[in-house]
């Protein structure tokens, strides 16, 4: 797969005037509204936001699973019309095929492309070696730990040499230690392959540690509230997470998200008919009450 590493960076993602609504029983429900984002070739960009803000919806539209109600999604100038192997995707639930061995999972994209068996076997072995998984090539996913499963998920998505990699809270189900290791592995692969990454997470530390830029979304209907460049130098070390620069970025993002989370929760509390409790819906009082 050395040809991939040698390529010029590709994968310019553009999302313009994007909105997406779906039909609810009380009329259309606006999930995402008036959103513009872009990812430059080879850039690592994260989207953070309160839960239910539509960040996954946005990612699924870039993947081609959802059609925008208005606006347009393009990759390298070509309009996204449906899922394709050009845009690799990693899911939170791992979504490995349980009936395929680790190697067969990694081979899947190459098989779909019509690559002969011996060739794709070799390619899959090389990739699994890079991820330190060669000893498990014949195992079925069920036998693997969560971190191993997600490594297979990432390798599988990268096997076909996509222009962009989309990740939907990929480490959300992992424990803290495994998560740190996975972040390192992802960074290494990203630097080696020079592809664009769009990463959805609710973990602020993770977003800052991994990204060149972070988009922060508003509560539903989601739109971009802020765009924060992360000027931390690379390669990044765990120790940087204690630096004043990192902590300042963290504080900024935290307060942005908290505002939106409170808005989102305020809506829920009103829905539950708890206004009678006379809770102040701004600032810290609510956090303390809860």
């Amino acid at each position: 797969m050395s040809d991939i590493a040698a390529k010029e960076p590709q994968g310019h993602i553009e999302v313009r005037n994007f909105s997406l609504s779906y039909d609810g029983i009380e009329g259309p429900v606006q999930a995402v509204t008036d959103t513009q984002i872009h990812v430059k070739p080879g850039e690592f960009v994260s989207i953070v936001g309160p839960s239910g803000c539509g960040k996954s919806t946005l990612l699924n539209a870039v993947a081609g699973f959802l059609k925008p109600t208005t606006g347009i999604v393009t990759v390298d100038g070509e309009r996204v019309n449906g899922p394709s192997a050009e845009r690799g995707m990693v899911f939170q639930q791992y979504s490995l095929f349980p009936w395929k061995t680790v190697r067969e999972n990694v081979e899947f994209g190459l098989k779909m492309r019509g690559m002969p068996r011996s060739q794709r076997e070799r390619a899959a072995r090389t990739l699994l070696g890079l991820a330190g998984l060669e000893a498990f090539e014949k195992h079925y996913p069920e036998k693997l730990s969560g971190g191993m499963k997600q490594r297979v998920g990432i390798v599988r998505a990268l096997a076909t040499g996509p222009k962009v990699l989309l990740l939907d809270e990929p480490f959300g189900a992992l424990d803290a230690q495994t998560r740190v290791i996975m972040q390192q592995i992802l960074t290494n692969m990203w630097q080696r392959l020079k592809i664009s990454v769009l990463f959805v997470t609710h973990d602020i530390d993770e977003a800052i540690f991994l990204s060149d830029r972070v988009y922060c979304m508003t509560a539903r209907p989601g739109s971009i509230k802020a765009e924060i460049p992360i000027p931390l130098e690379r390669p990044r070390q765990q120790s940087m997470m204690m630096s004043s620069e990192f902590l300042a970025l963290r504080r900024g993002l935290m307060s942005l998200i908290r505002e939106e989370s409170l808005k989102a929760m305020g809506g829920e509390i009103n829905d539950m008919g708890m206004q009678g409790l006379n809770i102040e819906l701004h600032g810290h009082s609510l956090v303390e009450v809860l």
Binding site: F65, G82, A85, G88, F97, G109, A157
Partner: peptide
């Protein structure tokens, strides 16, 4: 989700 995974691997 498995169907989606297959789709974005080109199936």
């Amino acid at each position: 989700v498995l169907v989606r995974a297959a789709q974005c691997l080109g199936a």
